[in-house]
Amino acid sequence: MRLPPFAYHAPDTLDKALKIKAELGASAPILAGGTDLLVHLKHRLASPAAVISLKNIRTLKGIEVGADSLVLRAGTPLREVAAHEGVIRNFPLLVKAVHSIGAVGIQHFRGTIGGNLCLTPRCLFYNQSLFWRTGKGQCHRTGGKDCLALKGSESCQAICSGDTVPVLAALSAQVTIASAGGMRTAPVAEFFTGKGESPFNMTPEEILTEIRIPLPWGPLSSSYQRLSFRSAVDFPLINAAVAAILDKGKVESFRLVISSAGPAPVILKELESAIKGQKPDPAMLQPVREAAIKAVEGAIIENASASKEYRVKLAAVAAVRAASEALGLENQPS
């Protein structure tokens, strides 16, 4: 299938890339692994003037473990993330999430950690060919004024589908974003706008350069759960991550994030204070289930390869399983 015409830039420094970005903005998307971008281009969901390849920018690749955080440069291939000793030791849930992306034997060599975080939100009415969409009219993301999946919706409800998203959000990771004007950081949780047509809090001139995950300040107990139809080569129908600090039998901190529901991950904040300071108890799981359903019911619409009703049920299952694993409640009756 043919790609639309575009120019190709492969600058060898971030500064040069940012200069091009400053000039071309949204008309020059970043090409990291290309596993998401090229499909979009083939479907004419974008017809950019140029693409900016990160191929030659060495400083955007690699992983460092510092005193208080682990830094993943945005262009690091997924395979290196999952194989990195520091990642494996500190964040087993991230390894599990990365292993869930695409097929381990393939996507991992080209796909990058930054690319997964910036995966374009997905929708069954949007991720279709130009021909398919011709008969359907335009949506919020293709220049129209309505949503094909949810008539009357004020914005695009496409699904944030990255496997690493709930994990990074649960781990309170920060993103570093660069522009010709300088650098800034933001929590992953705030990186998402909740609007499918402009899903990330980034200007067209900015480039995501790194993801910084704070090292746990106590014993990390965590879980990543994803539910999909096939065991590989499938985007999640729902995913959830829990990062908790369990010390001396008590939950010192707890964060549960559900994603692949709507355009942004959902952090179940109210659970954090309720569970904090408690001993893990199966009785905690019912509130988790209820909170999960409440959190996603408004976010999930009929735009994925399973119904809204089913995905809401899955969200509850994924949340409970994640909480249950992280709190060590797996073999206890709830």
Binding site: L31, R79, F109
Partner: peptide, 19 residues
């Protein structure tokens, strides 16, 4: 469309030739 690129399996359909 899988080919090996520097020993790694990649999808040649999603890899720009210039890459």
């Amino acid at each position: 469309c899988t080919v090996l690129m520097d020993g790694n399996p990649v999808r040649s359909c999603l890899t720009l030739a210039l890459e």
